[in-house]
Design a protein around this nucleic acid. Structure first.
Length: 299
DNA sequence: TACCAGGTAAAAA
DNA sequence: TTTTTACATGGT
């Protein structure tokens, strides 16, 4: 019996550059979501591999090794690649920490959040659509809207759903998108983005190999993606640790709190305050945001 | 109820 | 060229 149960699952160990604190990083992810979401110390995601929906569960075993579990038949290397992508496995925090150590007043940040890595959506298409949904409205509202899009257009696997493919959203009607809670304008942005990908006019994966300025320019050439969205995608989806939208409300809030006089800074002030922390401005801002959301005392 | 929330493109000035 | 406006949901 137990053999049969284990035979239907494959355990895949994940290599991740240290330091890394899985539980802490998980708490940071969840601090940006409604309270009730996945309280367990494991991460469950649904992705498409070889055009088949696959549910993946990531957890730590008894000796703190990071482990991914999937149903039978999934391509192990691709599951590894997806999990490593989502968890920023290759990101080395040490150079960032060395840079911050030059500022004793920020020692608390590294001490309290040691091993924290950001996570990212499984695909740049999902990242881009998420950026659009998060424009202007609260993250909580955006989260609900994004979920409705996934529910409506995604493919179910176990109790999860895979984020819809570009070809699905390219064909969606404006009304179908709008009933998810998207504005007409955002529905058009998303459909336009998906259409460009389907038509072969845009290769989001190609952004990975571009230098940062070229990638930013490419993103901003897509209708619906301004400076904020471009920098948001660069830091969150493309792991460019120096990128950060300085006009972002959340970033202005935490830069004012942790680097300023406590009040939200303007975009210009935000840029000036972050400037000494090149080339890790985006990573630092992420740490500030996590500290704020996790209510970590700044002492 | 009104207002704000991790913006953007298009219209108006 | 710069400023203003419409837009969607959810929490306070």
């Amino acid at each position: 019996m137990s053999n049969q149960a284990t035979d239907t699952k494959s355990n895949i160990y994940i290599t991740i550059v240290q330091p890394y604190d899985f539980a802490l990083s998980l708490r940071a992810i969840r601090s940006f979501q409604p309270a009730a979401v996945q309280p367990e110390p494991r991460l469950r995601i649904a992705v498409r591999i070889n055009d088949k929906p696959v549910a993946i569960e990531v957890s730590e075993d008894e000796v703190n090794r990071l482990k991914a579990t999937t149903g039978p038949g999934a391509d192990i290397e691709q599951v590894q690649a997806v999990v490593e992508w989502v968890l920023f496995a290759e990101l080395d925090l040490k150079p960032f920490y060395r840079q911050i150590e030059g500022n004793p007043e920020l020692a608390w940040l590294i001490q309290k959040l040691y091993g924290l890595k950001p996570s990212r959506p499984a695909s740049l298409f999902e990242m881009a659509v998420t950026a659009i949904t998060e424009q202007q409205i609260s993250l909580l509202a955006a989260y609900q809207i994004r979920n409705r899009v996934v529910q409506r257009f995604g493919e179910a696997v176990e109790d999860l759903s895979v984020f819809p493919e570009p070809r699905v959203l390219a064909k969606a009607s404006l009304d179908d998108l709008r009933v998810c809670g998207l504005s007409r304008q955002k529905s058009e942005y998303i459909r336009g983005l998906a259409g460009k990908i389907v038509a072969g006019e845009l290769d989001l994966e190609g952004l990975k190999s571009m230098d940062t300025d070229k990638a930013r320019e490419t993103i901003m050439n897509i209708k619906g993606f301004g400076r904020w969205s471009a920098d948001y995608i660069l830091i969150r989806g493309l792991a460019r640790p120096d990128c950060i939208p300085v006009d972002d409300l959340g970033v202005r809030e935490v830069v004012g709190r942790y680097l300023g006089n406590g009040a939200r800074t303007t975009a210009e002030e935000t840029a000036a305050r972050l400037k000494p922390f090149r080339p890790f401005r985006g990573l630092l801002a992420f740490y500030f945001l996590a500290a704020y959301r996790l209510k970590v005392p700044s002492e």
